[in-house]
Amino acid sequence: MTSQEALFNYNLRLGDTSLILAQRLSEWTGHGPFLEEDLALTNIALDIFGRGKALLEYAAKTEGKGRTEDDLAFFRNDREYFNALITEQPNGDYAKTIVRQALIDCFDLAFYSELSKSKDETLAGIAAKSIKEITYHKRHSFSWVNRFGNGTEESFNRLQNGLNEIWPYAGELFEMNEVDALLIKEGIAVDLSMLKANWEKEISQLLAKANLVAPEGTYVQTGSRKGLHGEHLSYILAEMQSLPRMHPTAKW
């Protein structure tokens, strides 16, 4: 693997993770529990879409084969996607969406803060921009975990159930492979093992505050680094890609 190939794959991983999460979150548009939350999640999805666009634009440039960010988003199949599995999991109820978001926001803030020090100027620039946005995303998801956890029996139960369902997918965020190894050596990628202890500490404090219990067992579902996904991604792509695939030359 050349460093150019590694960087292409790394950009796809980051870009796909943002794109698929944003696509999932945007399913709440018009279905939020009340107007302000509907706007909140739509706004958050929009920020994450924007980040995905910038990253896929850079991926296309790194690949150097004349593809655009739209080609990458709309004309790749599931096995060619590298988004983290946690992002493609169904939204479930609002509590599950929120707890998934809290786990991801906590990771993302630490990750992009480190990435902003990357030797790759484009990645560092996108990361620095993202930190501002993830900061208020995290404030939003953390505050709702707290409110649901300390709310009614119903809200607590829904939150705990959501956590139980999403938990086995969180560990994959920290998985590294030869792409990471190569790019860490060049000062480009973030060493994910350095982020884990802090993430665990912050999340366990959040869970404790909301009276939640992290599920027992240490099973971690992985696969996305190799392009292996559950069935959910295929349905997301079918919906997201159907229009451009039907009219590949259409212009807005």
């Binding site: 929009l46 879409f49 666009k53």
Partner: peptide
């Protein structure tokens, strides 16, 4: 430069 990453 974009104001927000996803500013439409």
């Amino acid at each position: 430069t974009p104001t927000y990453s996803g500013c439409p």
